[in-house]
Design a protein around this nucleic acid. Sequence first.
DNA 1: GCCAACGTTGGC
DNA 2: GCCAACGTTGGC
Length: 153
Amino acid sequence: MNYWLVKTEPHVYSIDDLKHDKVTAWTGVRNYQARNFLTSMEVGDTVLIYHSNAKPPGIVGVGVVKAKAKPDETQFEKNGHYFDPKATPEKPRWFCPDIRFSEKFGRMISLDELREQQSLEELLLLKRGSRLSVTPVDQKHYNIIVKLANKKS
DNA sequence: GCCAACGTTGGC
DNA sequence: GCCAACGTTGGC
C-alpha cells in the first residue's frame, strides 16, 4: 500500500466537493510524470489532498484510491478544457483513477507549516521546482503529516 | 536530436 | 498580476 499527494485548485474542485461527491474520477492531469504516478496507484492507496492556488495553500484531507486508472474521458471532449487532439479512444494518452473521500482534516496544514518541519525536508511537494500535481509520499512523511493534522493549533 | 519560443504551474 | 521554474512543441 502506497501513499500519494495530489493537488487540486479549490475554486475548481475542493475537498468539500470530494466529500459531497464521495467518489470522483481524478481527471485533467496533463503531465506525463504525473500521469505515470496516477497509473501506478493501486486500489486502497492513501492520497493526501492539497489545495493549490489557495490562500493559503496546504494539505486539507485524505482520500483513498477506489479504482485503478482508466482512460480520462475529458481528453476526448472536443470543446472541453482538457481536450487532447492527439488522443484517441483506441490510443488514449491520459488516465485517471477514482478517488474516494476519506476525511477532511480538522485544520489545514499550510505550505508554510509544512516547510517549517525539518522532518519533511525531503517531501517531494516541498522540493524546489516541483510543480508536479501528483507525487508519491513516504510513509514516514505521511505519518508526520497526519500527526500535524491532529495537533491542536 | 537540438534548442528557441511558447505555454503552464503555482507561490507570492 | 508577476514571474521563476519548469514542460512541450516544432523548425531545422
